Structure formats: C-alpha cells, structure tokens
Amino acid sequence: MNAPAVLGRRPVLVTGGAGFIGANLADRLAREGHDVLVYDALLRPGVESNLAWLRQRHPRRISAAVADIRDGSALAAAVGEAQAVFHLAAQVAVTTSLTDPREDFETNLLGTFLVLDAVRRADTRMPVIFASTNKVYGDLGDIGLGLSDGAYAPRDPAIRAHGIAEDRPLDFHTPYGCSKGAADQYVLDWARSYGVPTAVFRMSCIYGPRQMGTEDQGWVAHFLIRALRGEPISIYGDGRQVRDVLFVDDAVEAYCAAWQRIGAISGQAFNLGGGPANAVSLRQVLGCIEEITGRQIHRDHADWRAGDQRWYVSDTRRAARELGLRPALPWRRGIAVLADWLREVHGAGVPAEAMR
C-alpha cells in the first residue's frame, strides 16, 4: 500500500498512534475518511496488536512510520507530509520517570520540542493538539480533604462541586510532571510565538478498549485484567484516593472537536476527564469490578507513591462549553464495556453473563 503522501493526500499524523488513546483516535479519524499516519516506536508491550488492528480495519487509510519520537529526521519527514498533528507519544509513568529521568526528559520534552520545531519549519501552519496530564497541577496538597462515603473529598464546596479548573496554578512534581508540564507550556507558547494553532488536553484517567493496563499506567484496565485472572491487586495508599475516569470514546471526541474548532480555541489548555459525575475512589472501582466478575479481589496494600494525588477531579466546564462535548459515559457502564473487551481479548474464562 502506498503512503497517503505518495498518493497526493496529506494524512493526519498521530504520534503514539499505536498506543491506547492513539489507536482509538486513529480508528475514529480513519472511519471519518481521513488518511492517518501512525508514528510509533512500538516499544510498549501489546501495541503491535493495536497497529495490526488498525491496518486490518482500514487497509487503505492507515500507514505507519515505526520510529522513535526523538528521531528528528524521521519525525521531520512525517510532519512534512501531514495536515494536522495529534501528539500523544510519551513516556507515561511517574515511576519510570523516577528511575530513569533522562529517558523521561528526552521522550516527553525533547520529543515534543522536535514535533513543534518540525511544524515550525513546515510549509504550512498545521494544528498541533497535545496530550498533557493532570500532574501539571502537582499533588494538590494545599486542598483540604475530608472523607465522604469512604473516599477523599475537598472541604471547599466549590472545588467539590466542579473540580480543578484550568486557572489552577501549575506546580510540577516528579520528573514526569516536569517533563510533561514543560512540554505543555511549549505547545501553548508555539501559538503565541510562532502562530501555530495548538491546543492542550490535561488529562485525568482515560480507560477503555485497547488499553494494555499495567500497575504503573492504565490502572482501571490493570485492575480488570488482574481480577479476571483471579490475581491479587496492589493498592498504593489506602484506596480512598479519587480520580475522575473518562471513557476513551469521550476523550477521542474531545480531540476531534479541538481539531474542528482549532481556529477558535488555539493557544488554550483544557482539563479533560470524567468530571464530578465520574469521580470514583479506587475502592469503589474495585467494588464495581467484583460485581462485574462475580469474584472477590484480594488486595495487597503498600505505601503511597511519589507524586500521587489523594484527590483529583477535572472541572470539565470549559471543555464542554468550548468544544460542544456531550456528557461523559457513566463510569459503571464504561467499565462493563472494557471488561467485555478484555474478556474477549485475554480469554479470561469468565462466563459472559457474569460480565453484565
């Protein structure tokens, strides 16, 4: 198959396009008739199957460049073909950033700079939409917390009602927070300094099909995989920490809407998560998984990990308003969908009726 550029068409470039969110985004773009160039080093276990899945579903729409995000020449060639860039390639784990901070720095910050520099040098001002993280806000240790129904909750009623907004001061913790936070700021500045249309999504916990969850990243899928195998789950902290989880289709909808509205929203950052309606503790998620699988989960407890937030919930009002987003899929329904997909892929041997 010829690459789209060879055929005279400019593809949409998705860095990290064989990863969890990237593969779902590439699938959506291809279904809508776009040619997609997946740029991925294929280093994360399982992502080869995501790329094979994309090629099988869209043999005339998907092309791939297997290369590292730090390979400036390969990246410049890919950007030179593109009409838009969704930059999702990253080192994604706080734990990894602590053990190998240089790898984290080079992948997340240098890699993002190389994307932006290639766009700056290109012959068109193509949009760049970047996957950032809620970790840019630090550990939120100044927010007073209490317990409500066995989960942490802010004492401030306004924060409890709406979550963390984009005007929250940035406060980078851990090498991962520093590398992603600095990259976040570079992307926003490229709109100011060079007129490149950019947008940033500071994401909370995204989950859904095609997620190869591990203990360090993708915790909802990781919990489900362990539960379906009848294996114990390690909880770092007391399990009362809260996140707002967002189903991947809703995240992809936001990315596509940002591209469609890039002229109006360029230079802005958006907090992207499930919002207060989908704010759940780890304990609540485990309870839901036990109901879905019909199995009791054995829990091992360990100390809190560096940079872990006791509570984080996205204020999604700006994203909903500016991007026209629909309400997010309720978290219990989303976890059931992910459980069905994992059962099919991993062959966990759980009766289908137990998955409903």
Rank of each mutant, 00 (worst) to 15 (best):
F86S: 06
A67E: 07
F113W: 10
P59C: 11
A74N: 03
A84N: 02
R44M: 10
H87P: 04
A41N: 14
A67H: 14
R28M: 09
F113M: 10
F20L: 04
G111L: 00
V92Q: 02
A84K: 02
T96S: 15
A23H: 05
T112C: 06
A30L: 10
H34C: 09
E32V: 11
E106S: 07
G16A: 02
T96N: 14
L29E: 02
D71N: 00
G17D: 01
W53A: 11
Y39L: 10
V36A: 03
L54I: 04
D40L: 00
V79C: 00
E32C: 12
R102A: 15
L51A: 03
F86C: 11
D35T: 08
W53G: 10
A77I: 07
A52H: 11
I62K: 01
E103S: 12
E81G: 10
A23Y: 02
L43A: 15
L98W: 14
L51K: 06
Q91Y: 11
D100Q: 12
F113D: 11
T95S: 15
F20H: 06
H87L: 07
T96E: 14
R44C: 11
A82T: 03
R57F: 08
A89M: 03
T112A: 09
L110S: 01
S97N: 08
A64W: 04
R31I: 15
S97M: 02
D71Q: 03
Q91I: 08
G46C: 01
V79T: 04
G16F: 05
N24Y: 04
E103P: 12
E48A: 15
A52E: 00
V94A: 05
Q56D: 12
D27S: 07
G72P: 13
I62M: 00
I21Q: 01
Q83L: 13
A18S: 09
R31D: 15
S97R: 09
N50S: 09
A84H: 08
S63P: 03
R31N: 12
P45T: 00
R102H: 15
G17Q: 08
H58D: 07
R70C: 07
G16L: 03
R55P: 04
L43T: 15
L43H: 14
N50T: 00
A52M: 07
G111R: 06
V36S: 02
G16D: 05
L110K: 08
G19T: 04
A82H: 01
A77V: 12
V94H: 10
A93H: 09
